[in-house]
């Protein structure tokens, strides 16, 4: 696709702008910012990726993945209602998910140890993990807030913090992972996944594209469940002290 052709696609940005203006939706500014940001960010990433792929050096791959993790941590911390000290918990979760998935993929030689595979898959894994992290944190903090009396009841009857928070933790883990599982049930029927569509458009064999997409889908299942569970078990101890007392103040939203 040439830059001239790309400029024609701006029609798809103009349509929501016109509609927003007509129906007084007030979305013009955000739409413009989103369009400009995606152009700049994606072009920049395109050039950076080209450099990393050409260099064939592992250090650049690691740096690129680290950059993704830092950006995901920053975004999840900003968007999700928070728990005291959540930044490092998010960071550790994303690092562990990345290490786990790449260890399986590279260790079992499912994908070759090449930049285009590692970076592309890492982007999908970390991105999915970030969304899951936000979903989990929002639900978990809401559950803890609304069920404070239940937490206090269990503590007062001689329960441990883990027992006192168990129901809220499980509810939040389930609620955050269900969208991933449910969307996979209708995949191919309702929507064609982005990566698969991209490969097909680029001229790849559709069956090969499907096989790769299946790999990603299975990977995202692991990512979803592992992210929520890890984040949950890293987060809940922050809500209690060593005397097993509930620390409501640690539920406060962090300044972004």
């Amino acid at each position: 696709m040439s830059y001239v052709t790309l400029s024609l696609t701006l029609i798809f940005v103009l349509i929501p702008l016109v509609l927003s203006k007509t129906f007084k939706l007030g979305l013009e500014k955000d739409t413009l910012i989103a369009a400009v940001r995606s152009i700049i960010q994606l072009l920049a990433v395109g050039y950076v990726l080209q450099f990393v792929f050409d260099s064939k050096q592992m250090i650049y791959i690691v740096l690129m993945v680290l950059l993704m993790i830092v950006a995901a941590t920053h975004n999840a911390r900003k968007k999700g209602t928070s728990i005291k000290g959540i930044t490092w918990k998010l960071f550790v979760t994303f690092v562990c998910i990345e290490v786990l998935t790449q260890a399986i993929l590279l260790g079992l030689r499912i994908t070759p140890p090449e930049a285009q595979y590692i970076i592309s898959i890492s982007g999908m894994v970390i991105g999915n993990s970030m969304v899951l992290g936000i979903l989990f944190l929002n639900r978990f903090t809401a559950e803890v807030e609304t069920n404070q009396k239940q937490t206090e009841l269990i503590l007062s009857l001689g329960g441990t913090p883990k027992q006192a928070i168990h129901t809220q933790l499980i509810t939040a883990i389930k609620a955050s992972t269900i969208p991933t599982i449910e969307s996979q049930k209708t995949i191919g029927l309702v929507q064609l996944p982005g990566m698969m569509s991209g490969q097909i458009i680029a001229g790849a064999d559709p069956v090969q594209a499907v096989l790769f997409q299946l790999l990603i889908l299975f990977l995202l299942l692991t990512t979803a469940v592992t992210t929520s569970i890890m984040l949950g078990y890293l987060s809940y101890p922050t809500l209690f002290n060593e005397r097993m007392q509930f620390l409501k103040e640690n539920l406060a939203v962090e300044e972004s």
């Binding site: 239940q150 007062s156 009857l157 329960g159 005397r243 097993m244 007392q245």
Partner: peptide, 16 residues
């Protein structure tokens, strides 16, 4: 803490 809370029980107004 768990031993203490079993020794000193508490019942609250809301009876959660």
């Amino acid at each position: 803490p768990t031993e203490l809370r079993r020794l000193v029980g508490i019942a609250l107004q809301e009876a959660t």
